[in-house]
Write a protein that binds this DNA or RNA. Structure first.
Lengths: 119, 119
DNA sequence: TCTATTTATCAATAAGTGTTGAGATATTGA
DNA sequence: TCAATATCTCAACACTTATTGATAAATAGA
């Protein structure tokens, strides 16, 4: 992830419809959702949804695949990881306690319990 | 952190000068840097730097304090944490392995060695 | 007070972005 | 082929945002 990619990613996330789309796809998981479902969820026309998904795909935040008549979009999880890493790189500045809460917050999001991963 | 705050934050980060400012301040740590130093670092005029720092401060990503003739800016680390948490909330979708790499990446940024877990 | 220093505000211009609706493209089944 | 479905492309318009240079405000020291 370089500066240009990060700028594209943040620009993509700075628009209401697109931020909603990404969060919906992040929640949906790797299986993704069809363009039609996404359009309904965010209340966008087909042309408007296509415009925004194109922006997100160009930014590398989502990916698409074709299944029959439908286009299915899903979140690009590694890209999201890289974006977070880029933003917080060298955040410590000699003081690990400064950015450790960020790690804890993200960890809590992914693994509420540390014994069983069945959730 | 609600949707409006997240949109403002991502919009603030989607501009080259501002993204550089945030990363410089993230690296600099809580002590921060003066407006003059930041202007030199990113190659911006005083008016331009003021415009961008105002945007970042309004987005809650940085904070300012006055020391003599200088304004000193520093990163708002909790806001950055909240932004990451907002974006990745419920990212698992029943599959923790999907977003665990994000946690590992962020953790690696803050603690290159795991000798001491208490920081 | 006067001057140098540092930062912020303002207005004008230039550049970029989102929305809309019509129409095009691709797929499926008869 | 024809029709229905699902999605995408295109161009015009309105809206937002970044940059620039001049100027204003606040501070420190003499």
């Amino acid at each position: 992830m370089d500066e240009r990619q990060a700028l594209n990613a943040f620009a993509a996330l700075s628009q209401e419809t697109r931020l909603r789309l990404v969060r919906i796809l992040v929640t949906a998981g790797p299986d993704g959702l069809t363009a039609g479902t996404l359009a309904t969820e965010v209340g966008a026309s087909s042309s408007n949804l296509s415009f925004h998904t194109k922006e997100l795909e160009h930014a590398g935040l989502i990916q698409s695949r074709r299944e029959g008549r439908s286009t299915i979009y899903s979140a690009a999880f590694p890209a999201l990881t890289n974006l977070i890493e880029f933003l917080m790189k060298d955040c410590c500045g000699g003081r690990p306690e400064i950015c450790t809460p960020a790690v804890a917050a993200l960890a809590a999001c992914c693994s509420p319990t540390e014994a069983t991963t069945h959730g």
